[in-house]
Design a protein around this nucleic acid. Sequence first.
DNA 1: ACGCCCTTGTGAACCGATGCACAAAGTCAC
DNA 2: GTGACTTTGTGCATCGGTTCACAAGGGCGT
Lengths: 226, 226
Amino acid sequence: MSSNATQRRGIPDATVTRLPEYLRALTALAESGTVRVSSEELASLVGVSSAKLRKDLSHLGSYGVRGVGYDVDHLSYQISLALGLTHDWAVAIIGMGNLGRALAAYNGFTSRGIQVVALLDRDPAVLGRVVAGLAIEPMADLPRIARERGVAIALVATPARSAQEVADAVVAAGIGSILNFAPTSIEVPDGVRVRKVDLATEVQILAFHQLQHDRALLSGLRTVIP
Amino acid sequence: MSSNATQRRGIPDATVTRLPEYLRALTALAESGTVRVSSEELASLVGVSSAKLRKDLSHLGSYGVRGVGYDVDHLSYQISLALGLTHDWAVAIIGMGNLGRALAAYNGFTSRGIQVVALLDRDPAVLGRVVAGLAIEPMADLPRIARERGVAIALVATPARSAQEVADAVVAAGIGSILNFAPTSIEVPDGVRVRKVDLATEVQILAFHQLQHDRALLSGLRTVIP
DNA sequence: ACGCCCTTGTGAACCGATGCACAAAGTCAC
DNA sequence: GTGACTTTGTGCATCGGTTCACAAGGGCGT
């Protein structure tokens, strides 16, 4: 193990959620031919404070040069390394409704470390249909598919009522991480990671803040016109 | 203003993000005919600790009964009230690619306080096409549409390169909140609310945690077999 | 009518994340 | 080779959120 920060046990969660954002911004910079970037520039590009950015990066190691900034390529590589994106992750998408098909066709995945290797659905009527170059396969084949193609992450895009059952099948197939798009929470054993993306929830949170804003305006008026 | 908690200024952000989850669980309970629920039951249903749940609810007021629990309908109503979901919010979806169409067809929205009232795209080739019962309209009409239909929230589902331009148009049309699905961060003036949903980022975060898990297993083996 | 029992609501300690401000460190010009 | 300048990396203070543990409070059985 090296000096002080090469791969310190435990990058804070809040930092981990921001690293992909930094990585994306860096990728865009690299594409535009930029070679070096300061914490100030990169931070404003992703919309965080430069102090936060520097502290985040300090958890991976000391890859900047004082008085100069960061080398775009090198920093990209180090973040990719920390996130484990130097090799591709095989993901399976389960549930081929509107959302599942959109996910299958989403090309933000292919760009960085993520490869969709299987599409599955429970409905026999859609089996064999090809979406984004992959044929839809039956749920019964999940264990074999997971094993043969090294699937580590499953995207669950089923209706709420089947999400738990699908999650159980995913766990039984030995897949260790689930990204749950179904509008329900799922139970998994210890040692299985779950994240949740809920579209309606996001809009509702936004509605709340919009309402607060509207109310603040209104009460502002009231104080002016008593 | 009433006693101590009716509508205290400032429900913590972390609480606001969880309220929609509670609301969904309560709705499911109500549908199954449940009348009363304890903090313990509800908490395990959404996967949080009961203490956190109670503290969250305490920010809205005192709607539980000690020794008994919460009335499902009444609590649902109070959360809806706090979130501003007692009336519907009109949302517009911009960008009718795979994701935009999936969002338009998503029926998790209609259920609770959210109504999709417009679909827009910049591409003249898709204008007029009907998706989920709504015709796709041109971006030029956004100001009129926003005004006439009271759009308060826009869902931006365009490619990254057009997201900023679309966001500017959204702000110019007087829409106060944006849910950004494009894989880029956008700049908006003060007083406009933005939330971001990034699918690739979510998978990358999951990949990181999966990697940590794998590494932990591996080093566990090493300590056993030196 | 009384007291037991159960669950809420919350004060206080704890923990992690954020923001501030500056010393450390390296570059570049001369 | 030296000094001035720039930007990083980080110690410290602060803030918000979570957890713990229990007193307050209401229902229900007797």
